[in-house]
Simulated scan of single mutants.
Amino acid sequence: MKTALTQARRSALTLLAFAVVASAILASTYWLTRDTVLANEHAAKLALLQQVLPSDYDNQPLSDTVALSPVEAKRLGHDQSAVIHLARRQGQVVAYAFETIAPNGYSGKIRLLLGVDAQGQLLGVRVVSHKETPGLGDYIDLAKSDWAQQFTGQSWQGPAAAVGYWKVKKDGGAFDYMTGATISARAVTSCVGRAVAWLDEWKQKANR
């Protein structure tokens, strides 16, 4: 009995020692790689922003942000907080970049990044994440096709303000889609339209 108890204690101490060593290794690895990981994340975010912003801004859009209220964030499809990134030139805002979420993709939510200039014209739309069917609905991603390029240059002015404009052509709207994968295009198109209209309203209320 005493031998069994002693053996159990030794096993427990051995496991404890392994746990302590493993925790120390994980902690050391985290702190050694933390700055590199953060730098890589920063570079990836900046690279994505640069795809939807003009090239001649002179500030740091990643840190030059405006936090949205929970109500405004929810209107863009966010469950939690959200921000707008500002691109400035000589102190003046020349463009806005922000994320919005289409809740009704074929396979779930589609997260989008929009860039809009100070006049309300779309500079670009990029898919940040999605679960659409590979080889079918994923054409909404610029990495797969140039379908999203048709939003560039659009705005909430003139014809674009008309009811039904921000729909695919199959539904009487202005935007192309791929046969057999209409749901993905519908979700993105209507979401982009809502987001552009929202930004125009937000700018007026915030006097920006």
Rank of each mutant, 00 (worst) to 15 (best):
T6Y: 13
I25H: 01
Q150A: 08
V66K: 06
F175G: 07
I140Y: 07
L113C: 09
T33E: 10
W202V: 08
A67N: 12
V163T: 15
A43H: 04
D64K: 08
G120N: 10
T152W: 00
R88M: 02
N59F: 08
G77I: 07
L62A: 04
L53Q: 03
L76V: 06
L114R: 02
V128K: 11
T14C: 08
N59T: 04
A102W: 05
D56H: 14
I25L: 15
D141Q: 05
V93D: 01
T3H: 10
L86I: 11
D117V: 03
K2P: 00
Y57V: 02
A181Y: 04
N104S: 15
T33Y: 08
R34G: 00
L62D: 03
I25A: 14
D117A: 04
R10K: 12
L5T: 11
K74S: 15
A187K: 04
Q90E: 15
N40Q: 15
L16E: 01
L5M: 10
G172T: 06
V128G: 02
I101H: 03
Q7P: 00
V66L: 15
V83W: 01
P61A: 10
W166N: 02
T65D: 02
I140C: 05
S107P: 00
L49H: 06
F18A: 15
R194T: 10
Q60A: 14
V93F: 01
V196L: 13
R186G: 06
D35E: 15
V21K: 01
L48N: 05
G193C: 10
S69D: 12
T6E: 09
S23G: 11
M1T: 11
E72M: 09
V94L: 05
E72N: 15
K203V: 13
I110M: 09
Q60L: 10
W202Q: 08
T100C: 10
P134I: 05
Q204E: 12
G77H: 07
R88D: 04
A87V: 07
L136K: 07
A95K: 05
T3S: 11
A44L: 11
S63I: 05
H42Q: 13
L68K: 05
W166S: 04
W198C: 03
L32H: 11
G135C: 11
L32T: 12
F98P: 03
S184V: 10
D58E: 08
P134W: 07
W198Y: 09
A39I: 03
S23I: 00
A4V: 14
Y165P: 06
S129G: 12
I140T: 07
A206G: 00
L86S: 05
A73D: 06
D171V: 06
T152E: 13
A161M: 12
W31V: 09
G164D: 07
I110K: 06
D58W: 06
G77E: 08
R10W: 13
V66S: 04
W156T: 02
V163N: 14
A87Q: 03
A19L: 15
A73Y: 03
L5S: 09
R186P: 03
K45G: 00
S129Y: 01
A12T: 10
L68W: 06
L49G: 05
A95W: 04
V66E: 12
P159L: 13
L26D: 01
E99W: 01
R10C: 00
D56Y: 09
R75T: 11
V37Q: 14
A97I: 01
G137H: 09
R111V: 14
